[in-house]
């Protein structure tokens, strides 16, 4: 126990402690999804697995990209590439709040010395057609996590309900490690032979991506890619469920969902390039949502999504 309360010394140690904590709680510790996403929620382990009745329990780090948040590496707390830590458990266990608080203790936050609060925050993702109720969790006035009970994903009621925890890792680490400038916090052990800060790892790339995101990315190409992803998603989902080659039922929900993720990220890039007007914005979000909803519809037709030949409509 004494060891548990000792402060972590680096960004990576916080990640490793979260990994072992949630592994100890029985979660499957997954690796990041291999695509560009805006948030950990986009990982199919959350979006798709929240659908249907099959129980699920997973935790993972998800590198996330928000092109409009780029600050050329100059901001102490904003990056266009950042990390989220994500936990998803279905059905949500009755002691999820206690489990969550345990994870904060595991990374060195002493509940007797800090002020932890659950402040109302209803979560809604217009691009995923999803919403849930929960809180943002405050530690001494700072938001350190989002805590959500999913009610709907892709237009489907979540039955049972998944409990989702999202930790903004940089902000949390800055607080736990005591740094006002995130670029200065140690990424690995500060006493390592080659100590590296968060800035050493990411700062240069941040400047490069900011320039590309804001000024260089070819908007015609991005727009074409968006249309391609949209078309491919629809084409995949239009295939019959039964595969003519293997003779097996294979509903390709996840490959289609990959295209939805792509479209979503391309929209974010177009947005950062400033070529999407206020009125067009809603239309694009609606187009991505249409894809996400169609993928959710397909996923519930898969075994993981709860499909059995008996309950087929």
């Amino acid at each position: 126990m004494a060891e548990k309360l000792q402060k972590p010394r680096s960004f990576q140690e916080i990640i490793m402690r979260l990994q072992s904590y949630w592994a100890a709680q029985g979660c499957a510790v997954l690796q990041p999804y291999d695509m560009e996403v805006g948030a950990g929620t986009f990982h199919p382990a959350t979006t798709l697995r929240a659908l249907g009745s099959t129980p699920w329990s997973a935790a993972y780090v998800q590198p996330s990209r928000r092109p409009t948040d780029g600050r050329y590496g100059d901001s102490p707390n904003r990056w266009q590439h950042y990390y989220q830590y994500q936990v998803i458990i279905k059905p949500s266990p009755p002691d999820l709040q206690a489990l969550y608080l345990g994870s904060l203790e595991a990374i060195g936050i002493d509940m007797k010395m800090h002020d932890i609060r659950f402040v109302e925050d209803d979560w809604e993702s217009p691009t995923l057609g999803a919403w849930g109720l929960g809180w943002e969790v405050w530690c001494d006035g700072m938001e350190v996590s989002q805590f959500t009970y999913f009610q709907q994903v892709g237009g489907h009621d979540c039955k049972p309900v998944s409990g989702e925890l999202t930790y903004g890792l940089e902000r949390l680490a800055m607080y736990v490690l005591g740094f006002d400038d995130g670029n200065e916090m140690p990424f690995n052990d500060p006493d390592a032979p080659i100590p590296l800060t968060y800035g050493d790892v990411f700062r240069e790339a941040e400047a490069q991506y900011a320039r590309w995101n804001f000024d260089v990315a070819d908007t015609d190409t991005l727009l074409q890619h968006f249309k391609d992803a949209e078309a491919e998603c629809a084409r995949i989902l239009a295939q019959p469920a039964d595969d003519p080659k293997t003779g097996r039922r294979i509903v390709m929900a996840q490959p289609a969902y990959d295209q939805a993720i792509k479209a979503s990220h391309l929209f974010n890039l177009l947005d950062a390039r400033g070529v999407i007007s206020v009125t067009e914005r809603q239309a694009y979000i609606g187009r991505v949502r249409t894809l996400a909803v169609a993928c959710a519809d397909a996923f519930v037709q898969t075994k993981a999504g709860g499909y059995t030949p008996e309950n087929a409509a």
């Binding site: 109720l133 009970y149 039955k159």
Partner: peptide, 18 residues
């Protein structure tokens, strides 16, 4: 004004009722 389900139950409350 807004209520929710949790776990695998069907009861609705503002947040899980313990």
């Amino acid at each position: 004004p807004k209520s929710m389900r949790w776990g695998d139950g069907t009861l609705r409350w503002v947040r899980p009722l313990h």
